[in-house]
Simulated scan of single mutants.
Amino acid sequence: MSKRESILLIVMGVGLLIGAYYYLFANQQDIGTDAKVNYQELNSTVDMVKGLANKDEFTEVERYKLELAETKWPSNPFYDREKFARQDQRQEKAELQSAEGLNLAYTGYVVMGDRELAIINGFEYERGEEIVTAEGYFVSTITKENVIIGQKNATEEIVEERVIPITEDPLNLYN
């Protein structure tokens, strides 16, 4: 054992002995039951707090904020991308009978660890996810050059697959 190690062990042992002494022997005062509680002072403090809580000293702005907090929200404040994308799709009334009529643009390929993401029409998708703007279609395969989307029928059989090549927008390439 080196000199440094032995010094550290001695300092640690002394620290343990001092800690054991304070834990076992020191600070052994008898607190007893003669602690006095002034109940009048305690009751007056409780009454003061109740009085302050019951006073209606709200300003006009605070009352307005309380009324707003109590009203029910008409819709969820959090953005739901699938819901809004489907609403946009219904507004366009695009019939998605075949993949040829789809207006899909594969504009990005992202790798994060072991996850591969394809950016299609501004949304990120993993393998197996349903395409929000094309109901009934899902991402089958993702590569750097293209993405393959598929469509399943009611028996979960793939009935159609389409290859979409990557398209880069030179205007938004570095934004």
Rank of each mutant, 00 (worst) to 15 (best):
Asn175Met: 05
Thr143His: 03
Ile166Asn: 03
Leu117Trp: 10
Gln28Thr: 04
Pro74Asn: 07
Gln40Phe: 11
Ser75Asp: 15
Ala26Leu: 06
Gly51Thr: 06
Gly108Thr: 05
Gly101Pro: 03
Lys55Ala: 10
Glu92Phe: 15
Glu129Asp: 11
Gln91Arg: 08
Pro74Lys: 07
Glu82Pro: 00
Asp30Ala: 12
Val49Thr: 11
Lys93Tyr: 15
Glu5Lys: 01
Asn76Asp: 15
Tyr64Glu: 12
Leu171Ala: 14
Gly101Trp: 01
Ala35Met: 09
Ser2Leu: 01
Glu82Ser: 07
Leu66Ser: 14
Thr45Tyr: 13
Ile120His: 05
Asp34Asn: 15
Pro165Ala: 10
Ser140Pro: 00
Gln151Arg: 14
Gly128Arg: 00
Glu116Gly: 08
Glu129Ser: 10
Val163Met: 04
Glu100Met: 09
Phe78Gly: 07
Leu9Val: 08
Ala105Ser: 11
Asn43Ser: 06
Val139His: 03
Ser75Glu: 15
Val37Thr: 13
Gly51Asp: 09
Ala118Phe: 00
Val37Arg: 10
Asn146Trp: 05
Thr141Met: 06
Glu124Phe: 07
Ala99Glu: 07
Val46Phe: 13
Gly15Tyr: 09
Leu16Ala: 12
Tyr137Asp: 12
Leu173Ile: 13
Gly128His: 01
Gln87Gly: 08
Ile166Arg: 05
Ala94Glu: 13
Ile148Asn: 03
Ile120Tyr: 04
Pro77Phe: 03
Ala99Gln: 06
Val147Glu: 06
Lys83His: 01
Ala105Phe: 06
Gln91Asp: 12
Leu104Val: 05
Arg127Cys: 02
Asn172Ser: 13
Asp80Leu: 00
Val147Gly: 08
Asn103Cys: 09
Glu135Arg: 12
Val46Asn: 11
Ala35Leu: 11
Asp114Ile: 01
Glu116Ala: 14
Leu104Asp: 04
Arg90His: 11
Ser98Ala: 13
Ser98Cys: 11
Thr59Arg: 02
Glu5Asp: 07
Asp47Thr: 12
Trp73Val: 15
